[in-house]
C-alpha cells in the first residue's frame, strides 16, 4: 500500500469534479485528498489527487480516470522527482499569559505564519508537505485546535518537465 500522487488535467467544465469524485466512490477507491483549480491553460483545470492503494489498484484508478471523456491527461508523479505542498489554516487556543508564547514558538519552528490574533486564539497558516502539517497539528492538539482547514495536496514535477507533456 502506497500513497500515490496523481496530477490530472481536465476540461474546465461544469460537472467534471462530480464525474471524477463519482467514479472514485462508485468503484470504491479512497481519495486521501483532492485539490482542484485553474491551470496554465485557460480552458483546463488541474486536479491533484492523492490516493491509497497497491500498484494494481492505482493502475485501475488511472485507467478509469482516463476513460472519463473530460479527463485529458493523467500523470502519476509518485515515482518522479516532484514537490508536494499543502496549505492549512489552524485556529488554536492561545490565551495571553498562558500558552500563547508556546504556540507562537511552535509556529516559528514550523515556519507557520500567524495571520490572525484574537483575544483567546491565534490562526496559524502553514505550508508544506502534508506530513509537516500532520506533525504541527499533532503538536497543537494539546493547546486546543478549534478549527482546522486544509487545502489538500498539490504537487508539481521538479525541473522543466511538466505533467501537461511538451
Amino acid at each position: 500500500m502506497n500513497v500515490h500522487t496523481l496530477s490530472v488535467l481536465v476540461e474546465n467544465r461544469s460537472g467534471v469534479l462530480s464525474r471524477v469524485a463519482g467514479m472514485f466512490s462508485r468503484r470504491g477507491f479512497n481519495i486521501e485528498s483532492l485539490a482542484v483549480g485553474t491551470c496554465e491553460v485557460p480552458e483546463m483545470s488541474r486536479i491533484t489527487i492523492t490516493v491509497h492503494g497497491d500498484d494494481t489498484r492505482i493502475e485501475q484508478v488511472k485507467k478509469q480516470l482516463n476513460k472519463l471523456i473530460d479527463v485529458i491527461k493523467v500523470s502519476d508523479i509518485t515515482y518522479h522527482e516532484h514537490v508536494r505542498r499543502e496549505l492549512a489554516l489552524i485556529k488554536v487556543v492561545a490565551n495571553p499569559g498562558s500558552t500563547r508564547a508556546e504556540v507562537m514558538q511552535i509556529a516559528d519552528t514550523f515556519r507557520a505564519q500567524i495571520i490572525d490574533v484574537g483575544s483567546k486564539t491565534l490562526i496559524l497558516q502553514v505550508v508544506g508537505p502534508p506530513e509537516k502539517i500532520d506533525a504541527l497539528e499533532k503538536l497543537l492538539r494539546q493547546y486546543g485546535v478549534k478549527e482546522l482547514v486544509r487545502t489538500g495536496t498539490i504537487a508539481v514535477l521538479r525541473g522543466s518537465k511538466t505533467t501537461a507533456g511538451e
Binding site: 494494481t56 485501475q60 482516463n66
Partner: peptide, 11 residues
C-alpha cells in the same frame, strides 16, 4: 478495446 479491462479482475 478498453485498457481498463486489462488486469481488472484477472491478471
Amino acid at each position: 478495446i478498453d485498457p481498463a479491462e486489462i488486469g481488472k479482475s484477472k491478471m
